[in-house]
């Protein structure tokens, strides 16, 4: 009954995207940490966790993400999260994860926000 999750890392428009396909529960811990460590060792500054709407996230999964934001804070990385259903967006806000990670409805929205900031830095 172990929940299976597929975690992949890719790069797009200057951001590191960690795609999560499957339930985010205690069984996902190793895969998520490995993906994050791989991304960080490659020098990622902006990391997008791209969830798949319809997948389930429980409190053990949220604890994994709290661990990630703890690491990201130490490394001065920016975390973005996309693809969450309205239910899990609400839970992330209730728990306080949104203090440490910006939520966007879609991956495109998150990439666009980084693009705008990048251009802003260029001109500023």
């Amino acid at each position: 009954m172990n929940g299976e999750i597929r975690v992949t890392v890719r790069f797009e428009k200057g951001a590191t995207i960690i795609d999560l396909a499957g339930d985010v529960t205690t069984f996902a811990e190793e895969a998520i940490h490995k993906a994050y460590q791989d991304a960080s060792s490659d020098g990622a500054r902006n990391i997008i966790f791209n969830f798949r709407e319809g997948d389930y996230i429980n409190s053990a999964g949220i604890a994994i993400l709290i661990g990630i934001v703890t690491e990201a804070r130490k490394r001065d990385q920016r975390l973005l999260m996309t693809g969450l259903s309205s239910h899990f967006q609400k839970i992330f806000r209730m728990v306080g994860l949104t203090q440490y990670a910006d939520l966007y409805p879609t991956l495109e929205d998150a990439l666009a926000s980084l693009d705008v900031e990048y251009q802003g830095n260029e001109t500023g």
Binding site: N58, A63, G67, T70, V95, Q99
Partner: peptide
Amino acid sequence: APDIQAQVEGRDPKGGLGLWLIRQ
């Protein structure tokens, strides 16, 4: 209620959200 700031800063252990979440 979970104190996420304390968890992120290492003052509280991570997790312990389950019962609180249920109540919400």
